[in-house]
């Protein structure tokens, strides 16, 4: 699934070359502008990678009437610009498309970043109809995705200027994490998260709204939602977990699904959720928490979060395809920061 399209400007998004007439720059290409608007409505982000001064990007935003989640203007290799944008928006290469009229630039990006979908402008008008550009469900969170990433840019700019620790920065941003049981109104977003999350998804399988609804009604399973906001904006429902608590007390809470949107990366959410699970399990009398986690190249960030929160696995080989990560609930248990509300 493509989550961000990175656009070249000259002879691609613009009908001409920006620097040839900076006083009267070329207009936006109408066919591509329509694609941009359509994709933005599906929650797909747009970004600019252009060999131009930064003014070209502000001009393109004005000419298309759209906001861009990330911008790299300069004379570095296009693959370097694409990689920097991936890091800005927190996406991996397989969630990104790159559109450029110059065959050499396309070849350079395709060679350096083989997982990026590389397209010529005339292919892009057609590609908008491909399944990779058509998310199956669209919630309010998805429609507002462009706005979230604009907030993210502002937050990251401030983080670069901020001198203190990460914890101090989260406080400085007035970060609020709310952890609470799921309600029926959350079902579409829960399904969407199960489809769209890969880097922070323990199960690697998608659940339908009906399957989540059945879990809400079950006596032994708990569905927990995590919401995130700070003074830059409200990100809504960014994560969730499904826990089988049947074995407790004096047993093990089994986390059957743990998932988080990549927009919440670096904002303390996954650590807060893991701490909350451990504390809630201990309060319920359980003596350990298990997370059955698939092992694939995409969910490495989740596995790093699990192991750095004290979860361990006895499994030695990735060939098994999945591994149970377990944390015993012996003290000291992590504390929940006061900006996490439960």
């Amino acid at each position: 699934m493509i989550k961000c399209v990175i656009w070249d400007l000259d002879e691609t998004l613009l009908d001409g070359v920006y620097l040839e007439s900076p006083e009267r720059p070329p207009p936006a290409n109408e066919a591509l502008r329509a694609v941009l608007v359509e994709l933005a409505g599906r929650g797909i982000l747009h970004a600019i990678a252009s060999r131009n001064p930064p003014t070209a990007a502000s001009y393109a935003a004005h000419a298309t009437g759209l906001s861009f989640a990330a911008v790299r203007c300069g004379w570095e290799a296009k693959s370097a610009a694409v990689a920097a944008i991936m890091s800005d928006v927190g996406l991996t290469a397989d969630a990104v498309a790159f559109v450029d009229n110059d065959a050499l630039e396309r070849a350079e990006v395709a060679f350096a970043l083989p997982d990026v979908l590389v397209l010529a402008p005339h292919e892009m008008t057609d590609a908008a109809n491909w399944p990779a550009f058509s998310p199956p469900v669209l919630t309010d969170e998805a429609r507002r995705r462009g706005e979230f990433y604009a907030n993210r840019r502002a937050r990251m700019a401030e983080a670069r200027a901020f001198g203190g620790s990460r914890e101090a920065f989260l406080r400085h941003c007035q970060t609020r994490v709310v952890i609470a049981p799921a309600a029926p109104v959350d079902l579409p977003r829960l399904h969407e998260l199960s489809v769209r999350t890969h880097q922070f998804n323990s199960a690697g399988t998608q659940l339908t709204e009906a399957q989540f609804a059945a879990l809400l009604d079950s006596g032994s399973q708990r569905v927990i939602c995590v919401r995130l906001s700070d003074r830059f904006g409200d990100d809504g429902l960014v994560g969730a977990c499904v826990i089988d608590t049947a074995a407790a007390p004096a047993g093990r809470w089994e986390v059957q699904l743990l998932m988080m949107s990549c927009r919440a990366i670096g904002r303390g959410v996954i650590d807060a959720l893991l701490s909350w699970i451990c504390l809630a399990a201990r309060d319920a009398g359980a003596d350990q928490v298990g997370v059955a986690c698939v092992i694939n190249p995409r969910n490495v960030p989740l596995r790093i979060a699990l192991t750095s929160a004290g979860f361990r696995t006895e499994t030695r080989s990735a060939a098994a395809g999945s591994a149970p990560y377990v944390r015993r609930l012996d003290p000291p248990l992590p504390e929940l920061p006061d900006w996490v509300l439960t």
């Binding site: 880097q199 960030p301 696995t313």
Partner: peptide
Amino acid sequence: GLDSLGATILLTRIQTLFGVDVASEDLNL
């Protein structure tokens, strides 16, 4: 001060540069 995404990018670079896939050889990282 790496977060989980930063550490993932590091592991990707190590795999490209040294051919060592740390994330699948060391499940406890």
